[in-house]
């Protein structure tokens, strides 16, 4: 029965790799944000499967706290990136000539 966490850890490593590779491709921002989120889930999957102690024993709580922090940080970063992109889409396509001094 000890094999199942190993399966999840290996799946996590696989998803982390695939997501990271996809995020480096030159695509629409939305696709890259999805890739980064998926790659993040891959790392979290590795962390949680390291914490799994089988059916009877309680799992190790520390990785669970780390992953919870990771999930919230991931949504904050994705939100900022999407808001930046929304702003980019709203700005007039022509380069604004007003120099950068506010």
């Amino acid at each position: 029965m000890g094999s199942s966490p190993l399966l999840y850890a290996v799946t996590g490593a696989l998803i982390f790799g695939i997501g990271l590779l996809a995020s480096l491709r030159d695509e629409a921002l939305l696709a890259r944000i999805i890739a980064i989120n998926i790659s993040g889930v891959g790392v979290f999957l590795m962390l949680v499967s390291f914490a799994y102690r089988g059916f009877e024993l309680a799992p190790d709580p520390i990785p669970h706290a780390l992953v919870l922090t990771g999930i919230v940080v991931a949504v904050a970063a994705s939100g900022l990136a999407l808001a930046l992109e929304k702003r980019l889409a709203e700005l007039p396509k022509s380069k604004t000539h007003k120099e950068d001094s506010p």
């Binding site: 966490p5 499967s49 919870l68 999930i71 939100g79």
Partner: peptide, 23 residues
């Protein structure tokens, strides 16, 4: 399945829900 109910809650609400809505 991996005995992490806190994360299941958070993933469903934040990971799939909020992030999905934003996307």
């Amino acid at each position: 399945r991996l005995h992490a109910p806190d994360l299941a809650l958070a993933e469903a609400i934040i990971g799939a829900g909020l992030t999905g809505a934003m996307l």
